[in-house]
């Protein structure tokens, strides 16, 4: 790792931590602010990802669609109240060229229902492309590769 990426690492990890705290705190309206206007946010099982299939569980092409997801959760979709708790690994910087940082971070997500029932909901890796805009790091691409092909019941909140 060169000096530049070493210097970037704490900022990248801070972005990723702030994002998972935002989801876990259920501040859904703030989620779009972590992304660039043209960002890609995709949740996809590892098998599809490795086979080069594009279709997965969730697909947002642009900040607008991420915003629409969040407002749909808020206003349209019906699901039992629940929260997530994310645990993320240290981040590995895969590259930093042309103003884009490629970073991989493993995650575990627990899902906690209001009844008290909780479970390990999903595991996987964030494959991020991060850029700097006006002094702020933002996700330009966040491919959430889930290890399992199976989703329990439904997936409402972002991973």
């Amino acid at each position: 790792m060169n000096e530049i990426t070493m210097m970037l690492l704490p900022r990248v990890e801070n972005l990723i931590s702030r994002y998972v705290h935002c989801v876990d705190d259920y501040r859904l309206a703030e989620i779009p602010d972590f992304f660039t206007d043209d960002a890609l946010y995709r949740i996809i099982p590892r098998r599809n990802y490795e086979q080069g299939h594009l279709v997965g569980i969730m697909e947002c092409d642009g900040k607008g669609m991420i915003h629409d997801r969040m407002s749909s959760l808020n206003r349209a979709n019906i699901f039992e109240p629940h929260r997530y708790r994310h645990m993320v690994s240290a981040t590995v910087i895969r590259g930093a060229e042309g103003g884009e940082i490629r970073a991989d971070t493993n995650f575990f997500v627990a899902r906690i229902m209001e009844s008290g029932e909780f479970s390990l909901f999903t595991t996987g890796v964030y494959r991020d492309v991060i850029v700097e805009k006006e002094g702020q790091l933002l996700f330009k691409e966040r491919i959430v590769v889930c290890d399992s092909t199976r989703v329990d019941s439904l997936l409402a909140l972002p991973i």
Partner: peptide, 8 residues
């Protein structure tokens, strides 16, 4: 096939 997954 564009993708596959399952729902429990």
């Amino acid at each position: 096939i564009l993708g596959t997954y399952s729902q429990y």
